[in-house]
């Protein structure tokens, strides 16, 4: 790791103020992704603002019948929360499908959303990567890209977003609340947090520099069953090859795009009475393979109908 300075933020306003005033500063919450990347010199902030102990870890009911989840709540606490388990089981299922218990105990909700891709070419600093070193090229494009994106990729980047939790949150139509460097709060749909890679895969979200995620807000649970299914090479503690979150009539896919992928075409097809296989077929019409990741198209075309059937079983609703 390169040298950096460290401060522990006392409140959110001070944290964003410090971020605005300090060049090349980063927020540090759980650290499970940022420190991993700093050790590899993929990330090299000059200054860390530890927001891990800010009073943003509460999980509260909203007046609208939803839940507000503080950005500093640990992944484990969210997964274990009785309200989440009863009303948003897809969220619990997605969270416990990610990482390991030790990682989930440390990782925050905000950090989970902002975790960076696990693309091997991003991680290996001897390789070109437009996300890590803009303009250097994409090592994965012509490389061993078995786990790369089939939706929304660009010639500059075919990396995927690794979060499981975010896939469920997108299917649940969550919103994020953020605090700007000027101390202004705003909120917007989580679906609009992450960007597709385009020409600038190093810019991964629509947050403005120095903005801090303070909470994720869930609307009341949708009608209908919920389920999260993740397929991977081993049974646990590994990245997904593909995943799907279903929440009533809404569906999102994981490990297939630079962002959690809301399967809008499939949702529309299902709503108009198409079979699950037809519906996911409509979604996959926009998918494209890059060599070794073509199997994901087949995998999703088989996984999603199975997941839809599972979500329609009795007792899967909120």
């Amino acid at each position: 790791m390169r040298p950096f300075t460290y401060e522990r933020a006392t409140d959110a306003a001070a944290a964003v103020k410090s971020a605005a005033e300090t060049p090349n500063a980063k927020f540090l919450a759980g650290g499970t992704n940022l420190l991993d990347l700093m050790k590899l010199e993929i990330e090299h902030p000059n200054h860390l603002i530890d927001v891990g102990r800010l009073p943003l870890a509460k999980i509260e009911d909203t007046a609208e019948g939803g839940l507000r989840i503080g950005a500093m709540a640990s992944n484990s606490h969210v997964a274990a929360d009785p309200r989440v388990r009863a009303r948003y089981p897809v969220l619990t299922q997605a969270i416990v499908a990610g990482g390991s218990p030790q990682l989930r105990n440390k990782a925050s909700v905000g950090g989970n959303l902002l975790q960076r891709t696990r693309c091997a070419y991003f991680y290996d600093t001897s390789k070109p990567c437009n996300k890590r070193a803009p303009g250097s090229g994409c090592g994965a494009l012509e490389g061993l890209n078995r786990n790369s994106a089939i939706f929304g990729a660009s010639h500059a980047c075919i990396a995927t977003h690794p979060s499981d939790m975010a896939v469920a949150l997108v299917a649940l139509d969550a919103e994020v609340e953020v605090l700007s460097p000027a101390g202004q709060a705003r909120s917007f749909p989580l679906m609009e947090l992450h960007r597709l890679p385009g020409e600038t895969p190093d810019v991964e979200t629509h947050l403005i520099p120095g903005e801090l995620i303070t909470a994720v807000v869930l609307p009341p649970p949708p009608k209908g069953g919920q389920v999260y299914r993740k397929v991977r090479d081993r049974a646990s503690y590994s990245a997904g090859l593909a995943s799907v979150a279903i929440a009533g009539g809404r569906m999102a896919l994981g490990a297939v795009a630079h962002k959690p992928w809301r399967a809008a075409e499939a949702e529309a097809a299902l709503a108009s009475g198409a079979s699950p296989a037809e519906a996911i077929g409509a979604e996959l019409a926009a998918a494209s393979a890059n060599g070794r990741n073509g199997f994901k198209i087949n995998l999703i075309s088989r996984l999603v109908p199975a997941a839809v059937a599972e979500a329609r079983e009795p007792g899967r609703g909120a």
Partner: peptide
């Protein structure tokens, strides 16, 4: 381990990429 011909390197270089069995397997 998978070899990338262009670089002559193994692409999975850590325990998140090279998958040994875990307890749940």
């Amino acid at each position: 381990n998978v070899v990338d011909a262009r670089y002559g390197s193994l692409i999975n270089q850590d325990l998140a990429g090279y998958l040994v069995p875990v307890q749940a397997d």
